[in-house]
């Protein structure tokens, strides 16, 4: 049997198309519809009500929540980028053999074989009141009572985010760096460039796609996360995503839906902006 090429293409796309429609587009459409509906403590009524949107778009609370979220995004990005770029640079340009490079990459990845809750709980013996860090500080006489802000604080959230998100930065950036031919670096050395000049003039611009993709990882993970905020802050810090979860738990679906749609729009906008710095197709095929 011979199908025409157009039909073949359609058939090939169909499974993904069906899944995407059923699992993404339809639920999204429902969420958008729900955000415009009226509700009370137990039900959602099929009546148009713009109050949820009015609330989301005009209240000071939304601004405050996004301020916290963006603060986390900014701090986490700066630190994971600095760490990720440095580690990737070391792995790609200073580790001589591929075996050792892969071994070190695996060493970064292995802690992530444990599940999220275990890793979250694991911070307590390190950062808690009776934890290792506090005992060390007390023992060295640097403080006379345990430091309270190490755990269940914004600091703890940032530590967990950085721990989680440095790895994707390392991997995406080192992936870009590994594509830089050695001869290009040697040509720059011939031209008299110092190591720092080579990093700034050659490696940084050529690693830009990896940096952009790593940044997408970090931005979407921090913006979409509520689990780390909840466990690491002990429920004391609120972010835009946490607010959605809180309303969902209270069965206030329309305002939660409105906040979700807003969040989705902001994340998509950021990703679209970041994609201008990276050709994902080129990154995947090369």
């Amino acid at each position: 049997m011979k199908l025409n090429p157009k039909a073949v293409s359609l058939l090939q796309v169909a499974p993904m198309g069906i899944i995407f429609t059923a699992m993404v587009l339809v639920p999204l459409l429902i969420i958008i519809v729900v955000s415009f509906l009226d509700y009370d403590f137990a039900r959602v009524f099929p009546e148009i009500y713009l109050g949820s949107w009015q609330d989301v778009l005009t209240s000071q609370l939304t601004l405050d929540l996004y301020e916290t979220t963006f603060k986390f995004v900014a701090i986490v990005w700066v630190i994971t980028f600095s760490l990720g770029f440095s580690i990737a640079y070391f792995l790609v340009f200073h580790v001589r053999t591929l075996q050792i490079r892969l071994m070190l990459l695996a060493a970064i990845a292995i802690p992530f074989w444990t599940s999220g809750p275990i890793r979250a709980v694991a911070w307590v013996p390190l950062l808690g009141r009776e934890g290792l860090v506090n005992q060390a500080l007390l023992g060295l006489g640097i403080v006379d009572q345990p430091v309270a802000w190490l755990m269940y604080s914004e600091f703890a959230i940032l530590v967990a985010y950085i721990h989680l998100l440095t790895m994707p930065m390392v991997i995406t950036i080192s992936n870009s760096m590994m594509k830089i031919p050695g001869s290009i670096i040697q040509a720059a050395q011939d031209a008299g460039a110092s190591e720092f000049q080579i990093i700034r003039e050659i490696i940084l611009p050529l690693a830009r796609p990896g940096i952009a993709i790593g940044t997408i990882f970090v931005v979407t993970a921090v913006m979409g996360d509520f689990f780390i905020v909840k466990t690491m802050s002990g429920g004391q810090v609120n972010t835009a995503t946490m607010a959605i979860v809180t309303e969902l738990n209270a069965f206030q679906y329309p305002p939660a839906a409105a906040k979700s749609v807003l969040m989705l729009a902001i994340v998509l906008g950021l990703v679209a902006l970041l994609l201008r710095f990276a050709d994902i197709r080129k990154e995947l095929t090369k």
């Binding site: 031919p181 001869s183 290009i184 040697q186 040509a187 011939d190 611009p205 050529l206």
Partner: peptide, 12 residues
């Protein structure tokens, strides 16, 4: 100064 087989021009 070296001229490389793959030219090694800075692509950006």
């Amino acid at each position: 100064s070296m001229m490389f087989q793959d030219y090694a021009l800075f692509p950006h």
